[in-house]
Design a protein around this nucleic acid. Structure first.
Lengths: 103, 103
DNA sequence: TTCAACAGTTCAATATTCCCGAACTATTAA
DNA sequence: TTAATAGTTCGGGAATATTGAACTGTTGAA
């Protein structure tokens, strides 16, 4: 099964990071990861209704934006927020976005 | 000639605001407006090469995101950043984004 | 007054990106 | 083995973005 590639944060452009956050579903996923530390893909999903392939795509985009790390554990994929690295790369950005997230 | 519609900031969703900022050209335009107060469309352009119709579209999107206000002055359109309103709606967001903008 | 130039918008066609069903891969439990 | 689970990848239709060409309004000059 695919092994994921995680970019170095210094290689992530701001546009890409903002683009990743500029989607309600992905932002909800990031918020869940910010609250939960470790989440399987299906548990990171923003809602029940979202198709698996769409979810997988969102997670891929979040990885490319340096926001999450995914590791395999048995047949599950465990996702975590790369919070400290992301904060070092874009100080204050994630805080500001999460703080302004709709309820 | 068209008269522009400017949304109330409370009607602007976070996604839309982030999407507007998640583009290098638009972000550059916002940065210029943040530095200059009042700018004609062509002076707000991120570079020489960008076509007029594309520029016009970017400005429309920035208007829809509540980031700028456009008023007519003779045959020119004058754009200004709706800084204080935007900051009230999304505290800290624009600062964080601008601060992390590439040089 | 026309008329040409200017500043920008709108339209429509093309190009790009996104979404999601279907097929696939890998791992585990029976 | 086999069936179930957890997710990825592929491909095609839907939605967005880009941009050249035509258009609208405004101004200054003949």
């Amino acid at each position: 099964m695919a092994r994921f590639t995680h970019p170095r944060l210094e290689d992530v452009p701001l546009d890409l990071a903002l683009h990743a956050l500029a989607d309600p579903n992905r932002l909800e996923m990031v918020a869940r990861l910010a609250a939960a530390e470790r989440l399987r893909c299906s548990d990171a999903a923003p809602c029940e209704a979202i198709p698996k392939s769409t979810l997988s795509n969102h997670l891929k985009l979040l990885r490319a934006a340096g926001l999450i790390e995914t590791t395999q554990a048995g047949r599950e994929m465990i996702n975590t927020l790369r919070r400290s690295e992301f904060d070092r790369r874009f100080p204050g950005l994630l805080d500001a976005v999460l703080a302004n997230r709709p309820a």
